[in-house]
Design a protein around this nucleic acid. Sequence first.
DNA 1: ACCGTACAGATAATCGATTATTTGCGGTAG
DNA 2: CTACCGCAAATAATCGATTATCTGTACGGT
Lengths: 211, 211
Amino acid sequence: MTEAQSPSERMYAAVRAAVMNGEFAPQQSLKPQELATRHGVSLAVAREALLRLVGEGLADRLPNRGFAVPATGAERWQQIAEARATIEPEMLRMAIERGDLEWEARVRAAHHRLARAVPYEQDPDAWGEAHRVFHRTLLEGCGNDVLLATFDRLWVDSELARRWAAAHAPARDAAAEHLALEEAALAREADRAAGLLRDHVTRTVRPLKTS
Amino acid sequence: MTEAQSPSERMYAAVRAAVMNGEFAPQQSLKPQELATRHGVSLAVAREALLRLVGEGLADRLPNRGFAVPATGAERWQQIAEARATIEPEMLRMAIERGDLEWEARVRAAHHRLARAVPYEQDPDAWGEAHRVFHRTLLEGCGNDVLLATFDRLWVDSELARRWAAAHAPARDAAAEHLALEEAALAREADRAAGLLRDHVTRTVRPLKTS
DNA sequence: ACCGTACAGATAATCGATTATTTGCGGTAG
DNA sequence: CTACCGCAAATAATCGATTATCTGTACGGT
């Protein structure tokens, strides 16, 4: 049942995964022709995939000079962390004010899946996805799709930047922080939860000292 | 100087303007073939323009069913207003903490241009652009490109939603609010400025009662 | 030796046509 | 009368090839 989707979709997914997995270095140019032949599709399909990536912030477009992996690194990572630390705690406040029982149940389930997930070292992708879902579920209670779309975008940027900014693995005590976060959110302690989230985001996303 | 750019660029600008100007109703489908023939270009160019619009949130993509103007209306507008009211005051706080003299000068200049601009009724586009630049300049002092990109995106969404959500004109006292905002920001009164901005965004963007 | 220019190869942008998918309609069975 | 099936028109997706633009290099003038 996991059979081939449209060529465009497969191409898009493949290039996206390649960029996110760091198979191309930042600022490396992404050549439609090469990608097309490699995946056995036409130029138009490769171009479309690249254009979609540009819309997501996963590629830059240089007019008449093609596409490239966006520049990234510690500085950009710092900015993304700050942006997340600015926005997400406020979203969590709203969620705690507005979230209903169904939200609480989903938070519990998401945290449970994250806690039970295979460790990061064993399967970074699976852990990362559970991690994303936990964070997103926490914020989904805010009931604002526009803010959630902003979160989605920042998360993608964050993951890309993280790969190139030194600290590939999550902080050692991420599990404890997630547990505290869940607990504060379900206890409806907005201030404490917001503070924890701010610290968590800042800590998790901050690059390691380059000492 | 205003001569023809690439076909792709002209096409993109034309469709973007058409959508922003409300020449297509929300959820109306945008047909590449029609747009292409109308502008005398090939399908690929129209498709590319649409793909770029999708990336900006100015078009939706329905797989195998083409493109459409995104659904919008009062409810979405409310969410955008809330998102802006959540994010922008925090950015302004940062700007007030970090902004340098050069930032202050640019804020003054932007406010001056807005105050001197032709009134909204006379040239909505020109006034709107001066308005956007003033708001953006205020926030630029925050020094975070990621947050500024978020602002840019929300502004676009906001303008599109505003057109379809009842209140086309800015609030009557927008000028007074802008003046107060400039004054509070330059006085470095972060709390007051943030509060003013939150109120301003909420008020300006809130749809008129549909009574 | 240095700078500017012209050429050649590579890459991006565009095109016109072909193929695949969806949608609406008409006919038919239940 | 309604539900289902299939055909035909419309539209989206894809392709292969052509045209425009850029990049680096070699040549010639100063």
